[in-house]
């Protein structure tokens, strides 16, 4: 009998493969997780969109929990999340900073006038170099950065109400509790962001 087990090998292999294929149906093969999660946000110093004479650096934000939202006036998907961002600013729960990615500053300013400005400050990444440093591959993308300047999560694509309530805000609450002086042995995670 045991000798005949080997004839079951093809069937067993097939069932294992089929299980993976089933799992694959609920995965998105095109979504690439950021390698920056739990790594320091890359440094940048860029001109402010509204006042090109001044500069803004990510280091200015050390000690605060903040969002870095990559956007552009040519980006259609950005319009989807925009009203939500504007609401967030109105509520004042979390500061949002904009990285205006590969955009003409005049058009970007016009766009903000038209659709409302959710950003504390937007900076101009005209060449898209900072975008590359942050591994941006689709606009919009939103990085959640903690008090120590560590990227803790990245939302790829427009933020929905669901993502906001399940992932972004719960994670921000956790990050607000953290002490910036203490290096955590393990980074806390939020269920809704998995």
């Amino acid at each position: 009998m045991s000798k005949n087990i080997r004839y079951l090998v093809p069937l067993i292999i097939f069932i294992v493969v089929a299980a993976f294929l089933y799992r694959g149906l609920s995965l998105n093969p095109r979504e690439v997780p950021s390698p920056f999660i739990n790594k320091p946000a890359p440094d940048f110093t860029l001109q402010k969109l509204e006042n090109m004479g001044e500069q803004f650096s990510n280091k200015d934000m050390l000690g605060k929990v903040w969002l870095l939202n990559v956007w552009a006036s040519w980006c259609v998907a950005c319009r989807q999340e925009h009203p939500l961002l504007v609401q967030m600013r109105r509520r004042g729960e979390i500061p949002i900073y904009g990285l205006n990615y590969k955009d003409a500053p005049s058009q970007a300013r016009q766009w903000l006038k038209q659709h409302g400005d959710p950003y504390e400050i937007s900076v101009v990444d005209f060449q898209g170099n900072v975008g590359i440093d942050y591994g941006v591959y689709g606009v919009p993308e939103t990085f959640i950065i903690d008090k120590r300047g560590i990227i803790r999560h990245k939302v790829i694509g427009p933020i929905s109400t669901n993502i906001l309530n399940e992932c972004v805000m719960p994670l921000v609450k956790v990050l607000e509790q953290e002490d910036p002086q203490v290096t955590p042995t393990e980074y806390q995670r939020v269920e809704g962001c998995a």
Partner: peptide, 10 residues
Amino acid sequence: TIGTSLALFA
């Protein structure tokens, strides 16, 4: 299709 065939084979 495949599962039944391989079971039949076994």
